[in-house]
Design a protein around this nucleic acid. Structure first.
Length: 424
RNA sequence: GGGCAGGUGGCUGAGUGGUUGAAAGCUCCGGUCUUGAAAACCGGCGGACCCGCAAGGGUCUCGGGGGUUCGAAUCCCUCCCUGCCCGCCA
């Protein structure tokens, strides 16, 4: 969520931001409307507060007269009339505020200046690592996964539906291995503080990180309990500090957490959904950082590097994409996607998205810090990235490390955790 | 799930309709004192929003929301959370 003052003080910066995202046509009129509502809203606030001040003064006078034993009936009557007027104005104000607020929640963040304008065709490859195998020279992961007894897609579909995976044997153990490997790397070498969090959160948390109100149809919801299944650990982990005032000396704060992630993927049916490419439930290790505005850009590079370390340790070729404005997530100012190569499907698969949200999430979630004693609280900057999402990593392992006989060599770092050197 | 007791500022904790944004203590900041520090003493110390160049003024805020009243931390309704007892249970 943007600062309401941005609408009034820099509406053109807002418009330029939307233009770079390719959203000016749809959101431009909303910004115009917001400007008008803001003017209206402030005038009404003034009118209400003026009357409230008068009422407060009058009430004091009533109190004084009552103490002094003087008559106050007439003053009480006139004050009651004032109260009715206040109620009417407040109703008007509530309507204006609610429309203004709703618009504010619909406007995405403004991307950083170095982010290319335009849609995803303007994404740029920032760097790449490793040597991809030639596409089409190995079997896709769903074939080897099934042949090696690691994945059971039909039974996943039977018990839950398509897009729900059953892992078997070493395939199941591989999930545990990845979880431990990634968490150990981040809590060890990278210095993150581990959290283990609820997989269902309330509406406030979903609003806090920006999934709601705009993306409600993408979420699994438990309607009877007003809870949502988390689409990423970003939601519970970032919201850990919701409504808190942090000590600047404690920044940056770095959390890592494993979680299952749930996504309805509404509208994605049939599109790159085979095997493990797009599933409704998957495991992921997430990195979240809270930092100052001054440091957030550097912290973003650091966090992205931590995610890359996972791929390097696994020996999987990948590339880093700087997303263009139009492809950058709603709340993000700048996003790097990490894509691992899967030679069996012949595609780069997104396994991580590392974003700097600036103060956009912090404002929604009300996460502030005080830089030093006596200073005003400021909003922190929040960042997060997957490091990494499991299914596509598994897909890449099964394809990149596939041998001619159909067996799969286990990456060195996973051997102690998996207990075998080769999946056969 | 049922019953009971509670939710007040960074913390502890007063306050049951009228100068209470809120006593007191602690923490913290500034000062006096001291070679320095501690102690003692003096002073200061929440946040959001609106108007204003500023100085300053105003509104709101005692778990959330709604209501009663001229006026609500205080009364009523509702929801959430915490503790205890009972029930149920991996």
């Amino acid at each position: 969520m943007h600062d309401a003052r941005l609408v009034r003080e820099q509406p053109d910066a807002l418009r330029e931001g939307m233009r770079r995202r390719g959203k000016l046509e749809t959101l431009g009129p909303l910004i115009d409307r917001a400007e008008a509502l803001d003017r209206d809203r402030r005038l009404t606030i003034q009118a209400v507060e003026e009357r409230k001040a008068a009422r407060n003064t009058a009430s004091q006078e009533v109190a004084r007269r009552k103490r002094a034993g003087e008559p106050a009936d007439e003053l009480m009557a006139s004050t009651r009339a004032l109260g009715e007027e206040i109620a009417r104005l407040e109703q008007e104000l509530a309507a204006t505020q609610s429309e203004f607020g709703a618009i504010l929640l619909e406007i995405p963040n403004i991307t950083a200046s170095e982010v290319p304008a335009g849609d995803e065709t303007n994404n740029v490859v920032a760097r790449s690592w490793g040597t991809p195998r030639e596409a089409g020279t190995v079997k896709p992961h769903w074939e080897v996964g099934e042949a090696l007894g690691l994945i059971d897609l039909p039974r996943g579909a039977k018990i839950s539906g398509s897009g729900f995976i059953v892992y078997r044997g070493l395939g199941a153990r591989l999930q545990r291995a990845l979880m431990n490997f990634m968490l150990d790397l981040h809590t060890g070498a990278h210095g993150y503080d581990e959290r283990w969090v609820p997989l269902f959160v309330n509406r406030e948390s979903m609003v806090g990180t920006g999934q709601l109100p705009k993306f409600e149809e993408d979420m699994y919801a438990l309607r009877d309990d007003a809870l949502f299944a988390i689409p990423t650990a970003e939601v519970p982990v970032t919201n850990l500090l919701r409504d808190e005032l942090l000590d600047g000396a404690d920044l940056p704060i770095a959390y890592t957490a494993w979680s299952a992630c749930f996504r309805r993927e509404a509208g994605a049916a049939g599109k790159d959904t085979r095997g493990l490419l797009r599933v409704h439930q998957f495991d992921k290790v997430e990195l979240v950082r809270f930092t100052t505005p001054e440091e957030s850009a550097a912290q973003h590079e650091l966090l992205t590097g931590h995610a890359e370390q996972v791929l390097q340790a696994l020996g999987l070729p990948y590339r880093v994409l700087l997303l263009a404005a139009g492809d950058t997530g709603f709340s993000s100012t700048k996003t790097y996607d990490l894509e691992v190569f899967a030679p069996g499907v012949g595609k780069w698969l997104e396994v991580s998205s590392c974003s700097n949200f600036g103060d956009f999430q912090a404002r929604r979630a009300n996460i502030r810090y005080r830089a030093a004693k006596g200073e005003k609280p400021r909003f922190v900057h929040t960042l997060n990235g997957s490091a990494l999402a499991f299914p596509r990593v598994v897909a890449s392992i099964l394809e990149h490390y596939q041998n001619p006989d159909g067996s799969v060599t286990v990456p060195d770092v996973l051997r102690p955790l998996l207990g075998v050197d080769v999946l056969r």
